[in-house]
Computed example of a mutant assay.
Amino acid sequence: MLGTLGLGAALCWVIESRAPVPARVAACIAIAIASLHVEFGLAGAFLVGAVYCWKTEARPEAGLLAAILLLATAWLNSIFGGGMYGLIGTLACVPIAWAAQRLPMQLPRMKLAFYLIYPAHLLLIGVAKRML
């Protein structure tokens, strides 16, 4: 997961970069090759960049690309991560994220909270998986 997010962040940097086009193309190729070795593959890494373009530039074609890449990621999760549950679980994140961003609350920024929350959520998933 962190590898996928890291490659997605690198892709966002490429999108915003003012580096010469050949350097940016080379970076995209390197990201694509590296994405073959992370959890959500090419679709997951480039999904981050597509969502970034869609949200920062309000480009409808980026939204369409993000939807296609999300479906590809959900399909991969269904193949490698638990059949229909992987597919439904991936797609269920969309309405949850949509609703969460509309909650009328502000949270303080906690830089290190991720390092506590991420392992805790993996533990909860492991416990739930053992129970099923």
Rank of each mutant, 00 (worst) to 15 (best):
M1N: 14
M1I: 08
G3R: 02
L5H: 06
L7H: 01
L11C: 04
L11A: 13
C12H: 01
C12L: 06
C12G: 04
W13A: 11
I15L: 15
I15K: 01
S17C: 10
R18C: 06
A19C: 10
A19T: 06
A23D: 10
R24D: 03
R24L: 07
A26P: 01
A27G: 11
A30L: 14
A30Q: 12
I31R: 03
A32S: 14
S35V: 02
S35Y: 02
H37Q: 11
V38R: 04
V38K: 03
V38D: 04
E39N: 12
F40T: 03
G41P: 01
L42E: 02
A43Q: 09
A45R: 06
F46T: 12
L47R: 02
Y52N: 03
W54E: 12
K55C: 10
E57C: 10
A58K: 13
A58T: 07
R59H: 08
E61C: 08
E61V: 11
G63M: 06
L65S: 11
I68R: 01
L69D: 04
L70Q: 12
L70D: 01
A72D: 06
A72I: 10
A74H: 02
S78Q: 08
I79P: 00
I79D: 09
F80R: 12
G81W: 05
G82Q: 01
G82E: 00
G86T: 06
L87E: 00
A92L: 14
V94L: 15
A99T: 00
A100C: 12
Q101I: 11
L103R: 12
M105N: 01
L107P: 05
L107F: 12
R109N: 14
L112W: 14
A113I: 11
F114W: 15
F114S: 09
Y115T: 05
I117F: 04
I117S: 01
A120V: 05
H121K: 09
V127A: 12
A128H: 05
R130Y: 07
R130K: 13
L132T: 10
